[in-house]
Structure formats: structure tokens, C-alpha cells
Amino acid sequence: MRSGSPEQNYHRFYSARNDVEIAVNALLMFCSAVAILTTVGIVLSLVFEAIRFFSFINPADFFFGTVWSPKFSSTTTNDHGQYGLLPLLTGTLWVATIASLVAVPIGLMTAIYLSQYAPRNVRAVIKPIIEILAGIPTIVYGFFALVTVGPFLKGAGALVGLDISATSALTAGLVMGVMIIPFISSLSDDILNQVPLAMRDGSYGLGATQSETIRKVLLPSALPGIVGAFLLAVSRAIGETMIVVLAAGNSPVLRGTPLEPISTITVSIVNQLTGDTDFTGPQSLVAFALGLTLFIMTLLLNIAALYIVRRFREQYE
């Protein structure tokens, strides 16, 4: 009864098929390793070059220094200049704060109106238009800030007797705020829609008006999610480069007011690394120490935001 050949064929067919499966699996696995490798590459290159930077400059002088004045002519003397992070950090925070002050109220009220008040067809038209703001390249915002918003603010300031610099934290922050409106509005919109209808009904059933329901029930219920959206937007603002390169004024000085030119972490990365590539002196290596700082800041913000949003979703599942 044993006729070997069909069985062998069967066997051969399936083992060939198995080989293909294994090869495909390996190939796919390799591809998904690229994402991991990218992260590893980012971390290693930032850490490695930052350590080289800290062999020139004391980390304490970097993290707590209040003066930023790198010297470019390092060949003659051993004086590398000063690399205090604080002026850049405060500049970054000024811009992020102003951006949030613009984006949070506008984005949140937009989300509220679109998700709670607007008829479906109005919402279908306006939502994509507002989302255009997130798709515009940042260089375009930067140019707009530089040639239009800056001079306008300067003129407006002069009218009321305020001395506003055309390129300043205010200019950059304002325009960056516009850029992150859709981040806040889309995420808040999603989150408001996730608050169970029962919550809304409970409030209406007690005789609350729509705005009372929104302000006193919906928003408090959605608060964790909205905070998450806010953190994501702040992380976006901190890492944004082109707007500040063009419109913040490139003046790395500790400032107590946002009306004057400032510089940010990202601006200094661009300034220190363009043109120079041999990465031998602290002048270019500092870009990696700044990049590492930036990476850690945004990473923490993102992790916090994702965590909060995930907790919020679980609460209503």
C-alpha cells in the first residue's frame, strides 16, 4: 500500500511552503527592526557626541550656565566660549508658553463648538480647513512670521507705546500657536466625543443649559484627555525649528520679557551645526548636547501625554 511518491510530493510542497513562510517572516521582522534601529541610532549618536562635548565643557556649566557665547575661532586658544543652556531654555519656554496661550483657548473652543454646537455639514467643512494649518510646512509659517506678523506686532506695539521687536518670542510664539491649533482642536474633539452620552444626558435631565453641561460636566470629565493633548502640543512647540529660526530674533540672552529677540534650543542646534561637520570642537558638538536635552524633554512630554490619554480612555471603556 505504500506508494512513496505522492506523499513525498506532498512533503516537498509543504516544506517548500514552510521555507517561504520562514523567509517572509524574517524579512518582515527585519523591516520592523528599522524603527527600533532608528531610535537606537538617535539615542546612541546623541549620547555619544554629547559625551564628547562634556569632555570639553563641564556638564554643570552647560545645564546651569546663564551665558551662551560659543567662540568660533577655537584653533588659536583653548578658550571655547561659554555654553550655558539657560538662556536657550528660557527662550524655548517663552515661545512654548505664548504658543499655548494662543492655541489652547482657540483650539479648545473650536473643538467644543464643532463637536457640540455645529451642525454636521458645517463641521464637515470647517474641520478639514482648520486641519490645513497642521499641514503647512513650518518654513512657510516662519516666513509669514518674519515678513508679516513681526512688522505688524512692532507697529501695533508702537501704537500703544510698547517697544516690541519685530523678531521676538512674541512673534514666534504667536505664529507657532496658530500652527498647533489643529493639534489641540482635533485631539480635544476626539476626547470630547468619547465622554459618554449618559453624562451629558444626566446634566440635561437636571435642567442644565448646553453651556453649563459643557463647562461643568463635559470639560471636567474630559480634562485628563485634554491635558494629554496639551502636552503633545507643547512637545511639538518645543521641538519646532524653522519658525523660531526665522522669527525669534536669534539672540541667546536671558530675557524677562517676550517682547525682545530670544533664541531657542533648536535655533542654536541649527546655528552650531550648519557649515561645520568635522565635529571636533565643542562648537559643533554642543548641538548634540542640545539635541539630547530636546529629545529627553519631548520624550517625557510624549510619554506623559500618551499615558494620561490611555488612562482617560480606559476610564470610559
Binding site: M199, D201, G202, S203, G207, T209, P220, S221
Partner: peptide, 25 residues
Amino acid sequence: GMVFQKPNPFPKSIYENVAYGPRIH
């Protein structure tokens, strides 16, 4: 007044839940 199928207390304290109606009105 209305009471719903699924209990739907607001995410506030017990006191604030009950005080909600009298407050708004």
C-alpha cells in the same frame, strides 16, 4: 427630573453630584 438606565454620576464628589442641580438653578 429624570433617572437613567445606567447610573451616571458625574466624575465629581458625592456632595458636588447632589449640589449640581441646586447650584445651576
